[in-house]
Structure formats: C-alpha cells, structure tokens
C-alpha cells in the first residue's frame, strides 16, 4: 500500500514540475495532501491514536484544503492562470526533473540504512529537488510560493522516516505548515501582487 502511495506521490511531483497552469498546481497540491494523509496512516503505526489523528488531520485540513483554497483565491484575484512566458518550458523542466529523480535514487542508495526506508528517502529527495527547480526556473512570485510548498511537502516526507520514534518532529512539521499559512494569508493579504515578476528595487 505504502509503495503505491509513494509512487503516486512521485508522479504528482513530476506533473507539478512540468505543468504551466496554476489551477493544476493547486489541484496537485491538494492531491499531494491527500496522498500524504494516506502515507501518514500507513507508516506511523506506532503513534498514539490522538497524535496520529492530529498529524493526519493536518495533512487533510492544511495541505489538501486550506492551502489549495488560498492559492485558488490568489489566482482568481490576480487573474494569472499560466506561468510566465520566460519560465523554463515543459520539455526542459521534464528533463531536469528526470535528472533530479536519478540523482535522488543515487543519493538514497548512497545513504542506504537498514533503519530508514529507502523509497521514502528517494521520494523526499526528489520532492526537495523538484521544489528547488520550481523556485529557480520560474519567474512569478506565486510560482516561488508553490516551489516552497513542494519543498515543505518534502520535509514532511523526510519526517516520516523518524515519525514513530520522534512524533514531536512531525508536529514541528505541522508548525511549518501553519507558518506557511500565515505567510500566504498575511503577506498576500497585504499588498504584494503575486503576479509581478520583478522585485528589483533593492540591489547594489
């Protein structure tokens, strides 16, 4: 079960890296939230029921509902539906993402450890790279934000590796999610237009 979910998650990461429509980004992030909910239930079997419920509801409420909802609102408010024309094209993004998948497999195998699930490691590294690729290759602020959300999903998967022994770390991951919520609501609720692509007033 867990292997199916992780493979499904990695497919969503590939799709996320190559897509060009913000609505698709929003839906994919929601899907990732639901998959992470499933992974949480399948993996964190040693946790007390209330901790598990808290972690799982966090993935469902924050990752699968709140964040995509806020993204959709931003998309509607700004009327920006596609990534910037100067962003890296889907083809090159696909090549980059495949290379990062290979790098992730290599790294996870190098770090092979009997106590750590290698599949988790591979997916976590892959998601980390994907998040960084989205941040680096896109122009608009909203894309950077999506890259950060992907990066944050990566840290959530990493935390699964030690979740049974240190549930506190998973809770800290949740704190990061809430932090992101504040970031999006607080900042976009202010005056920054997420569709602007030039933040160049401050330079040397």
């Amino acid at each position: 079960m867990i292997n199916y979910l992780t493979v499904l998650f990695s497919i969503s990461v590939v799709y996320l890296a190559v897509t060009e429509r913000y609505r698709v980004y929003s839906r994919l992030l929601a899907i990732q939230g639901i998959i992470l909910f499933g992974i949480t239930f399948a993996e964190l079997t040693d946790l007390k029921w209330y901790t598990l419920l808290f972690v799982a509801s966090e993935t469902l409420i924050f990752k699968a509902l709140v964040v995509p909802y806020m993204l959709n609102r931003i998309i509607l408010r700004t009327n920006v539906f596609k990534v910037h024309t100067n962003a890296l094209s889907g083809f090159y993004s696909l090549i980059l993402i495949i290379l990062s998948l290979l790098a992730s497999i290599f790294m996870a195998n190098t770090l092979k450890n009997p106590q750590i699930n290698t599949v988790f490691f591979t997916i976590a590294f892959f998601t980390l790279f994907a998040g960084l690729i989205i941040i680096v290759t896109h122009k608009l602020i909203i894309s950077h934000l999506i890259g950060f959300l992907v990066l944050e999903n990566s840290s959530f998967i990493f935390s699964m590796a030690v979740g049974n022994e240190m549930p506190m770390l998973i809770n800290i991951g949740i704190l990061l999610d809430i932090f992101v919520g504040v970031l999006i609501l607080g900042f976009f609720g202010m005056k920054l237009k997420p569709n602007i692509n030039e933040l160049s007033l401050l330079k040397d």
């Binding site: 750590i116 990066l151 990493f158 590796a161 022994e165 932090f179 401050l202």
Partner: peptide, 26 residues
C-alpha cells in the same frame, strides 16, 4: 520587497534547516 524576500528566503532556510534536523534525528 524586502519583507517578501526576507519571509521567503527565511522560510526556505528554516525548511532546509528542518531537513538537517531530521537527518540528525535519523
């Protein structure tokens, strides 16, 4: 602009630091 950059880069920073903490815990 400075606030956005600060929040964004610091958030990326704390997320990366969190992964580092996870590696120590592993």
């Amino acid at each position: 602009e400075a606030t956005w950059k600060y929040i964004f880069l610091s958030s990326v920073g704390v997320a990366i630091a969190f992964i580092g903490i996870l590696f120590i815990s592993m």
